[in-house]
Design a protein around this nucleic acid. Structure first.
Lengths: 189, 189
DNA sequence: GTCGAGTTTGAACATCTGTTCAAGACTAGA
DNA sequence: TCTAGTCTTGAACAGATGTTCAAACTCGAC
């Protein structure tokens, strides 16, 4: 059997769930809809994911890992470029898409209602800010760690704002100005 | 009958729905839970609100009106103070509470999944940015309207970021720095 | 008191949802 | 080919959910 022809149904189920969550919110994610979207039978969803919560948790973890990867860029390039790249990547049109942002928003809302999800989310957020602070530290050896952390905090506020406002139709020019603001914070004397 | 003793059950139902939405998300808002929380019988919820969607819509509208009121402050005070006040009020500990922010987040997520809600939300967002741009215009007669609008756009990004990040435990000092940033944008030469 | 309009109740109904499970299909090794 | 283990199916079940509605209640006007 040729590779690629064989379908990984577990992955298809997860993608179907993420797609439904992004498009219709949590009320649109039910086992039957997921199965239909993934093209499998109802029972298979519960075969791969113990229950609905595990399925959502898997989606949340995948998105969190994706976010954290943003602040762990190519370790080959010099520190300043790495930081710049990380700051710019947040507004990459590939990432700043409505489906992705919408998915993030729904997962964030779920974390508000479920402390189990909240814990996962909080940990990922911590790792993100830590990663950003570390990037700043490497690029700006003159700054104390607390100052790096402070700047990372400030940058994250703007990034979250960009990201959230993008869902309401933030224009590209405004995005660019916000990116510049994060760069100014990172590279301020 | 003493005023205040008589309960406005319609209002109590709406408040119960908003409370549940804030705490447990949309899955926690069902007619029975709303009735229980409001202390009324199940049927009464459908008596005052045609269906569940109308109930959520009413909650969304109330929150939107509340937000827009932030950029329509006391018209008695001078323009610069009015603007400052509006910029600071966003981070007022009375407003920046977890229940309120959580409610906003859930409503935003719902707007992503339902184009009817999205339209209401978009209109409110437009009105908010317009209001902010108008406040800047009154405080800064030297700026062209387009420049005011641009600055309002930039400020809104930071405000949304503050607001969203506050849900993840943004500390007060970081909030203050973000507020200062919005003031710098508004009053920049 | 009686009437009537407005309000309030909770049982009933149809539908939807998460989960279980027995049965079948598929696959690789013997 | 046979077998054992894994994967896949969809019917079935129990419980939840939105909505309807007939009956009961409230209270001011007459």
């Amino acid at each position: 059997m040729k590779p690629g022809e064989r379908v990984d149904r577990q992955a298809r189920i997860l993608e179907a769930a993420m797609d439904l969550l992004s498009r219709h919110g949590i009320s649109g994610v039910n086992m039957r809809a997921v199965a239909r979207e993934a093209g499998v039978a109802l029972g298979l969803v519960n075969y791969y994911y113990e229950d609905k919560t595990s399925l959502i948790r898997a989606a949340l973890k995948r998105v969190d890992e994706h976010d954290i990867a943003l602040v762990k860029p190519d370790p080959a390039s010099p520190p300043k470029e790495r930081l710049l790249e990380a700051l710019r990547r947040v507004a990459d049109p590939e990432l700043l898409t409505t489906p992705y942002l919408s998915l993030r928003l729904h997962l964030w809302a779920l974390a508000q209602a479920n402390e189990d999800f909240a814990a996962i989310n909080d940990a990922a957020f911590e790792r993100y800010v830590d990663g950003l602070a570390a990037l700043i530290g490497k690029a700006r050896l003159d700054l104390a760690p607390e100052e790096c952390r402070k700047r990372a905090d400030d940058i994250v506020v703007i990034q979250n704002g960009m990201w959230l406002t993008a869902l309401l139709g933030l224009d590209r020019a405004s995005t660019e100005r916000s990116i510049n603001r994060t760069e100014e914070i990172a590279f301020a004397p």
